[in-house]
Design a protein around this nucleic acid. Structure first.
Lengths: 210, 210
DNA sequence: GACCGGCTCAATCAAAAGGTTGAGACGGAT
DNA sequence: ATCCGTCTCAACCTTTTGATTGAGCCGGTC
């Protein structure tokens, strides 16, 4: 690679964009060539070309999610690499990002050196995972993903909506016994022991919508 | 006031601190005199003196919460003003911050001009609320009928986190009877009859953070 | 054809949550 | 001085939820 690594900063917070610019501009081999305040804008800018690495947040206000933008950018022929830079490290977030073709996953509390190193790694075509993130992925591999079944997610969503077992059973044309049975399995898979903590856990892992 | 407004930046993200520094240093009447990566460090630095305004995040990793640090700093004689700068705008967060003596409440997606204006307002001894935040407070005033008290929101937040009455009572140093009592009032105000539906209703109305 | 995972249901027991009533302490407001 | 709202707690009771065990049905797979 000749010339500096050309960067696009995609984050809805002006302060964060300024921070990234300040941190990365001190590196002589980096050049920030653009900023985007929405995921849509990031996709449009990336499609124009002249960008090597996109630093992408996952949480944007309204509009499309960062992982969707990542998928769109990754689908571009000869498009830039996408490096996720976010606050959260839930399984669902990480998996969605990797699934979408992200070249790396960093947490916003990462020190500047780690950030710069990850950008270079991504630009070179290799994968860059923050140590904490890599650790979570390893954990998940070791403990085979206890994925919830379709029916279980259906029940869990209704629990999250605040329905009682009675109400859920009527809505799904089940007996309360069956609803309870599903809940027992859900609790076991999520490692919790009450419906409210199941909702909390599922929300944190983005298993159900809120 | 003579001389520049002296600022302390308290945020656990190096990138955000760099961004704030970059944004605020362009203002000639501001001077960033310190940074803190934890709430505890912010309190220690504020106690030393020579600071006019603290820009404080609410969410820190481990350790004390930003609102606790705000209370500690506000308790200092001739201490600096504290300006909350965070991502969330739920009732629970806002009330805790105001209660703790915060001089203002801004959201991280605020444009730089709004940020600078708020800092000057706080330094002058007046209150600075982001338009979105002020709007929420107005709403709350208009409909006092169903407004939850601070304590009730506190309990409700923990319910949303998945804790049982037993766990909540220990965490808040209450008896279970008191927790139940709060819940009865919460249910009545929200028009629901179970903890899960209370969480659902509160989430929909953005009373608590998820 | 046998096996397995997912879905369904029942019965029973223990624990947690919810409803009701009543009451004391405390601070702010009238 | 009194009233009112908030916060605190208790006792009692009913309902819901969770834990356990066991079992039948169905569709896909080896």
């Amino acid at each position: 690679m000749t010339g500096p690594i050309r960067l696009l900063l995609a984050d809805d917070h002006p302060v964060v964009r300024a921070g990234l610019r300040a941190v990365l501009d001190t590196e002589t081999d980096f050049e920030v060539v653009g900023e985007a305040a929405t995921a849509e804008a990031a996709v449009r800018r990336a499609a124009v070309g002249g960008v090597d690495v996109v630093l992408m947040d996952l949480q944007f206000g309204p509009g499309i999610h960062g992982s969707e933008a990542t998928a769109a950018i990754s689908a571009l022929p000869d498009g830039p690499r996408v490096l996720i830079l976010t606050t959260y490290d839930t399984d669902a977030d990480i998996l969605a990002a990797v699934e979408a073709g992200a070249a790396g996953y960093l947490l916003k509390d990462a020190p500047p050196e780690e950030l710069a190193a990850a950008v270079r790694t991504a630009a070179a075509g290799r994968s860059a995972l923050a140590p904490a993130v890599a650790h979570r992925l390893m954990d998940r591999m070791r403990t085979p993903a206890q994925a919830l079944t379709k029916r279980e997610l259906e029940v869990l969503q209704l629990v999250g909506d605040g329905l009682s077992n009675q109400q859920i059973s009527k809505k799904l044309f089940l007996s309360q016994a069956t609803v309870k049975s599903h809940l027992v399995h859900i609790f076991a898979k999520l490692g919790v022991d009450s419906r409210t903590s199941a909702v909390a856990a599922a929300t944190a892992r983005r298993l159900i919508r809120r």
